[in-house]
Nucleic acid binder design. Structure first.
Lengths: 261, 261
DNA sequence: CTGGTTTCTTTATGCCGTAAAGTGCCGAGC
DNA sequence: GCTCGGCACTTTACGGCATAAAGAAACCAG
């Protein structure tokens, strides 16, 4: 038999997310778990071992239960992920002072959000397709809108700007998150990885420099930095983020100027 | 026994990607398959049924073989994906006229690249962590650099700009790809999805409009369009892409202007 | 005390990647 | 021309995954 996911499921999902009042006393044994505890355990698993290690078994084990015990509280894994996602978004700051205008506020927002993604990199692997519609997701959007409203841009344009900013921050974080994950999963650092591949590449593609002159040119330049500790790739990503963000903000400023003048 | 993935593996990967000369005559039965055929079959599976459906069994079946037959040609699934990735990148245009300057060329590049991602959405699910180092990946970068070099920007700044542009295009495509995937996997269109959730959301969060006034404000505005056929979400994504790209290009222009003046 | 509901466990199904071992083909060396 | 060994490919098997189905035990309302 096929159960069509519809009204019933949407109601269950949304009231889980917005945590309606708990039911009164019921028959049956006292619940040893709670939705909250399960979400926290799942977040802990994902934080510590990554999204790939997030299995119903792993979460159950962390709570001293079997995987199947979770299905009393949560209809399936996808919905558990939605709940994790919305809960963890609650860690984001909710307010940015606008005393010096939108630009410093937006810069701070971008930096904080990127840092958040790097703290919980699994969040980047949650599908962006259909918003989870949880309170913290809306709170995040509201925070960003409060800053961008200050630009005075038209609603339609603002939509596009929101998208561009979010995509930029997400993408920048994703590159680093992917790199860290690769280095953890394989046990090979980025430097080691490159030093074993680079000579082989030269050997297998001897005409590289003439075929790809600009790539060679770009590859020769290192990102400037005064920090020698953090690995090469992350220094570079940091620099790219700073430059890219400035370019993007310049673009917003230009758009604002044009829409006014 | 543990085999450390190092020199040997890197050499095999890279020479697969750059397709060194085939070996001479060998003992044993004639190969019924080829690396090329396997990569094509895998791409076909991913194009038709998505990355989630790409299994060694599925690829083997499409070629009339078992899953294990593939392991003669490819060491594992991850490397097959790398090969698919680099091969499919070959479909991207390699040259853009710069007669009218970099801006129209970059706009065309962004549109083509986004269209490419939507044609092969599984490409977006290939980790960005460590580049595959295949010829077509470099070709793609070279194409973008040829356009951006025209701005005359400093190498260091150019790095950041490349990142910002790539992230923006990727992210924009990802939103649509995710939406299409969700709608195919669940059999529920975006419109249906929203119409079942929207009333429940109002019910479960009755104070929504006062808690999230700006979100409500933004949600009220629809993206302008003259096209009534494509679904709502895609029309909106299209609009956001256009606006966002213009903002980003304005930013690059401003950066160029500043670096000159 | 009992019946029905609920929590949680057990068991089972059908996917996945891939290790290991087996089968038959075929070119190179005698 | 025969055999030996490497090669293409299949079969089988293992441990992992999400989750359906059914069972065991705890507990409240009557």
């Amino acid at each position: 038999m096929v159960v069509y996911a519809a009204q019933g499921d949407a109601r269950r999902s949304l009231s889980s997310l917005w945590r309606g009042p708990a039911d009164g006393s019921k028959p049956g044994p006292k619940p040893g778990l709670s939705l909250e505890a399960i979400i926290d355990a799942a977040i802990a698993v994902a934080d510590e071992h990554g999204m790939a290690a997030l299995s119903m078994r792993a979460v159950g084990e962390r709570l001293g239960r079997t995987a199947m015990a979770l299905y009393t509280y949560v209809p399936n894994k996808a919905e558990l992920i939605d709940l994790m996602y919305d809960k963890v978004l609650g860690e984001l700051p909710g307010d940015y002072p606008l005393d010096d205008g939108w630009r410093p506020a937006l810069t701070a927002w971008a930096r904080d959000t990127r840092a958040f993604y790097l703290w919980h990199p699994w969040v980047l692997q949650v599908s962006q397709a259909r918003p989870v519609l949880g309170p913290n997701e809306f709170r995040m959007l509201e925070t960003l809108l409060r800053i961008l409203k200050e630009t005075g841009l038209d609603v339609q344009v603002l939509r596009g700007v929101v998208g561009a900013v979010v995509q930029f921050v997400r993408g920048s974080a994703e590159v680093i998150a992917d790199a860290r994950r690769a280095s953890r999963d394989t046990g090979v650092s980025d430097e080691e990885w490159w030093y074993t591949r680079s000579p082989v590449l030269e050997e297998v593609a001897p005409d590289f420099a003439t075929r790809f002159p600009l790539t060679t040119w770009l590859g020769g330049a290192e990102a400037p930095t005064d920090d020698e500790c953090t690995p090469y790739l992350e220094r570079e990503a940091e620099w790219n983020f700073t430059v890219g963000l400035d370019v993007l903000l310049d673009g917003i400023e230009a758009t604002v100027a044009r829409s006014v003048g």
